[in-house]
Nucleic acid binder design. Sequence first.
DNA 1: TATTGTTATACTCTATAACTATA
DNA 2: TATAGTTATAGAGTATAACAATA
Lengths: 146, 146
Amino acid sequence: MGRPGPDTSRAWQLLVKFFFAQRSHLPSSCGGEDVEQLSPAQCHVLHLIEPDRPLPMSRLAETLSCDRSNVTGLVDRLESRGLIQRRTSASDRRVKVLQLTREGSRLRAHLLKRMTGRSLPLSRLSLDQQRTLVTILEALVGEKER
Amino acid sequence: MGRPGPDTSRAWQLLVKFFFAQRSHLPSSCGGEDVEQLSPAQCHVLHLIEPDRPLPMSRLAETLSCDRSNVTGLVDRLESRGLIQRRTSASDRRVKVLQLTREGSRLRAHLLKRMTGRSLPLSRLSLDQQRTLVTILEALVGEKER
DNA sequence: TATTGTTATACTCTATAACTATA
DNA sequence: TATAGTTATAGAGTATAACAATA
């Protein structure tokens, strides 16, 4: 619906810059009280798996837009930490669905909570700006409601 | 200036999701006519080095918020492709400054141009939204003017 | 002594290609 | 034949620790 303009390039540049600058601070540094120290990718996966909502590995690969073999490794590491579990789907024995363990669910909630904290630079924005940002990003990601 | 709210967490989640979804598409897939196929990190570094504006490696490490040893590797790879050059600073012989080669400068311009193209999802936003996004991101990154 | 950059090491992330098991 | 997931392999990204050169 829009047109490419000078702001297009500028926005992307800033987006990348922001992401690179923040990725090391959060949400990976979720360690703290928890022993675990998850990588950004692992944290991201943990976010994408919602409690009581089994997620096929193929869907995860799509969302991450990465190769399926990559997902195997990510899941291996998260599973070895006891955060998620693989389960063979009943309807199609080829697919494996992922679900959070109790520990995984706990850590995920902890992450979400932490992301809302004051330390997050995003909280420096006014509420109006935050709302606007969410609207824009939803349009970008192609999510309507969630 | 703001307060943590439900949108804070939501915004970050979307930001991460968007970045993960896009990182493989651009601007790394800048190959095309060029033989090179740069990684996202390498593209990012290329952006950060402006033509005729030598950048100390330590500054680059700060901007990327990563370890200095990491920068060594990134620069090694970009230098071996002939895109940038290391030069020992005259004022302080410990520091090395980076500058684009002619080829690097050309490729950087190509990247910037490509980012403005229609293919970029960001260009789906209205001009107003793009402008708003830039404003918000500038606040986040802590950049006033450029 | 402190700082800049490098090297050595180890682990994670990522893609490609070949494979297994299901469908 | 096609699809979901795995394995093997290779390269890139990242951090820690020890080191050299310079300040």
